[in-house]
Design a protein around this nucleic acid. Structure first.
Lengths: 193, 193, 193, 193
DNA sequence: TATGAATGAGTCTTCATTCAT
DNA sequence: GATGAATGAAGACTCATTCAT
């Protein structure tokens, strides 16, 4: 007996199938963008028959939304995990900023995450219905930065990171670590605290 | 020289036709993105016969590239024009920064320009062949900012503006002017000059 | 006998469910025609699970036939009810004809009934297996008209009413009452009685 | 050299192709009704590739409309031809009516025509956009009957014939000739002329 | 040179029916 | 008995590209 009981995968595991489809769609969005998303490709990547993709989602748009929500949730978890490694109690503010910058640089160096980021933003800029997902992710990002600074500064840093993310996508290398640390320091220097 | 030139609009004006096609394609990319680009739509929007779109461009990809190059050139001209209005002679550095911020805010408030921006970046992040176009635009933007600050700071401001542009797309309103001015000031404060 | 009977509405009422499914199917046929009939739509309209539609009927064709039979029965009841309001004892033949014409006009003015009529005929002209249903309805209609006239004339009036029904469907208004009365009178004038 | 010059049929005869597609669609509508109409079936019946059906008609609805217009035109021509055989100058009114009835009976005995008739009416009752086609055919029919009687009576006869047409479709045999002649006579007897 | 005809692949979506539970 | 999962076929429609003219 395995941990899931007698029904593991295959025919009768609706939840698992649904997840597999969403994961496949998310992967396609990250790899190729909205333009590459099609029922056929999702089905093939998820290893399910074509009909399954339309059975679980009323339309491709709905599937795309689910996939982006998944992406947003994963990004939020990742950034939270990143933040967990940075001590939140500032003895020396400068040291904290440096560590935060290092964390963000590590994050921006993970190409998969940056690609997911871009996929989320790109989709949202095209389809207003998806805006809440992108805005939600931005807010989650800001919320985490709030552990280290005020709201205004947190937003500025998040916005700057978004720009940096775009540039990481346009180069094979992410933004230089020292540059990033410098600019985050500059932005945080205006912190009234 | 005849004011009508040797090439009138209409039947025999290959150059004009080509431009009309490129402009139509650029408009479609800005309005709807790569996914909306098709020979038929371009032909209709440009008011040329279907065959013309394949006659002047070997493939849709080639046409898209030409359209994005057009977009990049126009964006560069726009930002240069914007900068022309900001006095380049820094008597009081703070005043200059404030004026620069105002100029950038005006730019980010022009939805058409921001949409063109996003179209360019989106295409470039998806197709490596188009990267030089987006990077060229970023460099042009940075070059203009260099009139006011050092290279490093110019890049940071440009990067921040890219992030701000994305957020302008996600909201109906662009980023707050005071916020933008504040953050540009913070970034410029690290200017060693 | 309990007033709720042994079969309540809800979980265990096979007969009620069957009726609900048939009624839903009939409604779809009237509203949109054969082309709109599908298990999914029937299930949704009837408020039963998808599986129920295939559980009670071996195929969609069988369900359609049941729905049309229901429609024919209802039409027959309606026309009988209409006739019940017209005095069957001919003192003055002309008066009876006028009242009959008024009754038929009222019937043809009820869009739902005319639509049901057309649905029945349309289905029957396309699928020979359904002919008996349409012919049965025509005979029932004729039988009722026989209260007022001979067989031959009754058939002629019924036939004329079928034509009038089609025209009621093609206009937003039914056929003019005076016109209808006039023509029924003309047809009945040949009555040898 | 044939009468059409060097391009006869096959690849470059757009008009001929269009006609072939419309004819195939009309045939399908007559044989099976709207429900049977599909691009695939039309293409196969017309002997053209699938893409041709969508190339010549923007949508299936547009193709259906063209096919029904074709049907209506043909019906009108047929009924006009029928009327041409009946002398329009009434020496003996009764004789004319008899000949007209004979003509109409012949018309109603041609199963193909009756089926086309029904196809036209059926489609029009379902889709308001097609109403003008069916009404146009009815008016054309009435106009021809006007050669023999007044407007009111012409409409009544046409309406009666529509009902008779429906019944011809529900039986393998058309309506009895004597019955038809009798009823047309009764309807015409009210003619105030 | 210029263009409209041409078409097969591929798009999303709906669905009847089967079947395991 | 009852039902939701499952799926392959078929639906309408779009289109990049080729090609004859």
């Amino acid at each position: 007996m395995d941990e899931h009981g007698s029904r593991r995968k295959g025919r009768h595991d609706p939840e698992g199938r649904r997840r597999a489809i969403v994961a496949a769609a998310a992967g396609i969005l990250v790899d190729g963008g909205s333009g590459e998303l099609s029922h056929r490709r999702v089905a093939e990547r998820a290893g399910v028959p074509l009909g399954a993709t339309t059975y679980y989602f009323a339309s491709l748009a709905e599937l795309e939304e689910a996939a982006l929500a998944e992406l947003a949730a994963k990004l939020e978890a990742d950034i939270a995990e990143m933040a967990r490694l940075v001590p939140a109690e500032p003895g020396d503010p400068g040291a904290v900023t440096a560590e935060l910058a290092a964390g963000l640089h590590a994050y921006l160096s993970d190409r998969d995450k940056v690609r997911a980021d871009c996929a989320l933003y790109t989709a949202a800029t095209r389809r207003p219905a998806l805006r809440p997902l992108a805005l939600g992710w931005f807010e989650a990002f800001t919320r985490i930065l709030r552990r280290y600074t005020d709201e205004r500064t947190a937003q500025a840093i998040a916005m700057f990171c978004d720009g940096a993310g775009v540039h990481a996508m346009l180069h094979d290398e992410p933004v230089d670590a020292a540059f990033l640390a410098d600019m985050i320091t500059r932005l945080a220097a205006g912190n009234p605290r």
